[in-house]
Every structure is written in C-alpha cells, then in structure tokens.
Simulated assay, not measured.
Amino acid sequence: MVICMDDDLVKIDDIDRKIIDLLNEDGRMSYRNISRILDVSVGTVHNRVEKLVKKGVIKKFVPIIDHSKLGYKLTAIIGVKVKGGVLRNWETRTAYHKNVLAVYDVTGEFDAILIGKFRDTGELDSFIKGLLSEGDVQRTYTQTVLNIVKEDMTSTKMIGD
C-alpha cells in the first residue's frame, strides 16, 4: 500500500492501516488496547504510530467536533473570486476566521472555495458582506447545505487501493 503525502510516497502495510483505522475510531485509544485488538506488541504499536507521525501520514490527533451541538447548524459552501496576485495572502487571512473550516484552491470560475459553519442566515449574511467589503474580493457565490449526507475528514477507505 502507498499513501502520497506532500509528494513523498509512504509505504504502509495492513498493520499500519488497522492502527490508523482504530485511532480514527477513538483517538484516545491506548497503545495497549490497540496491541490487544491487533495481536501485536505494545512496542510495535508505539513504533508504528511514531513512524506514521514522523512520515506525516498522521498529522495530529484532534477531536472531531459536532458543530451543531455548539449552535452552528448552517453549513455553507462559498466560491470566491479574488483579484490576481493576492490569492495566497487573502486565503491565509481568511483561513483564520472563526466560521471557516476549510479553504481550497480550485480550478474553474472561482479561485477558492470556503466551507463554513454558521449559527444562522444572519451570521452567514454578515460573513458574506464582510468578504465582499474586502478590496481583494471581486465576487462570491454561496450555497447552503440542506442535508449532510457524508462529512468524514478522517476516512481511510482509499488506503489500500
């Protein structure tokens, strides 16, 4: 199996993939518990996880937040057209806005796509108007999400293809 990370190919085996799957299910799972499930030593699990972190396959361990439980029930996908030559600076600034979960450089009609979570349409409206008031932003296109069919940033299903 091969995972492509930052132009470096990292080879992993079935044990590595299973460790990643278990950590995706519960990032706080102990190495001892993983070793029992996989029938390998605790040292093996420790060494494998350290290798996966060092190689950049595992970037960090973070909780997965249910934003709706915190009042952010509206998800928006926002296409943004930015003036030439300032895209990187604009993206860096915008990425730190509290409502922005993801920023993607894209091809096509827009320069960037933002994924954001908002409490309501008023908060979304204020965010969009704020974007449009920035001198670097030429226009936006906003879609609101009606239903989330799948939202899983931890999927390992492609590992092993």
Rank of each mutant, 00 (worst) to 15 (best):
S133T: 05
R119S: 09
L9C: 12
H67V: 13
V145H: 11
G27H: 09
K73F: 09
H97R: 11
D152I: 14
A95V: 03
K98Q: 14
D161M: 09
I148F: 02
Y31S: 10
V82S: 02
V49Y: 04
Y31K: 09
T156W: 06
V53C: 03
V103Y: 02
D7N: 12
D105E: 08
K73S: 14
E134S: 04
L124F: 12
D21R: 11
R48N: 05
K129I: 04
V45F: 02
N89I: 02
H97I: 09
K51S: 08
Q138D: 03
T121P: 10
E109A: 11
D105C: 07
S41M: 04
D6A: 02
T94D: 00
N24I: 11
G135N: 03
A102S: 11
F127H: 02
S68G: 05
D120R: 07
I159W: 10
D26W: 04
K59F: 04
L101H: 09
V10Q: 05
R93E: 09
L114H: 02
L124S: 12
T156D: 11
K59A: 08
I15K: 05
G56M: 06
R17S: 13
L52G: 06
A112H: 07
L38S: 03
E123H: 14
K157N: 15
I148D: 06
S35F: 07
V86I: 11
Y141R: 15
D13V: 07
K55T: 12
N24S: 15
S30Q: 01
I128K: 12
E151S: 14
S41W: 05
Y96S: 13
V10M: 06
G79P: 01
L132Y: 03
D105I: 08
T94V: 10
G108K: 08
V103G: 01
L146Y: 13
L74R: 13
Y104I: 06
G79K: 05
L23P: 00
M29E: 00
Q138F: 01
T107R: 08
L124N: 11
G79R: 04
T107D: 04
Q138Y: 04
I159K: 07
K69P: 00
L22N: 03
M158R: 14
D39S: 15
N147D: 10
D125A: 10
T92P: 00
K83F: 00
W90E: 12
L9Y: 13
A112R: 10
C4A: 12
G43F: 03
T75P: 00
L132T: 07
L52K: 04
I148A: 10
D8M: 08
G160E: 07
R36L: 12
F127G: 03
V145F: 11
V86D: 01
R48D: 06
D13M: 09
Y31F: 13
R93I: 05
A112N: 08
R28M: 13
K54M: 13
E123I: 13
N24F: 07
E134C: 01
V86K: 02
R36G: 06
G85V: 01
M1H: 08
M29T: 00
Q143H: 15
D6C: 00
R36D: 09
T156S: 15
P63K: 14
L52A: 07
V100G: 01
Y104A: 04
R139Q: 14
T75M: 08
V86N: 01
D105K: 13
K83W: 00
V86S: 05
D14H: 04
E109Y: 14
I58G: 02
I15P: 00
I113E: 12
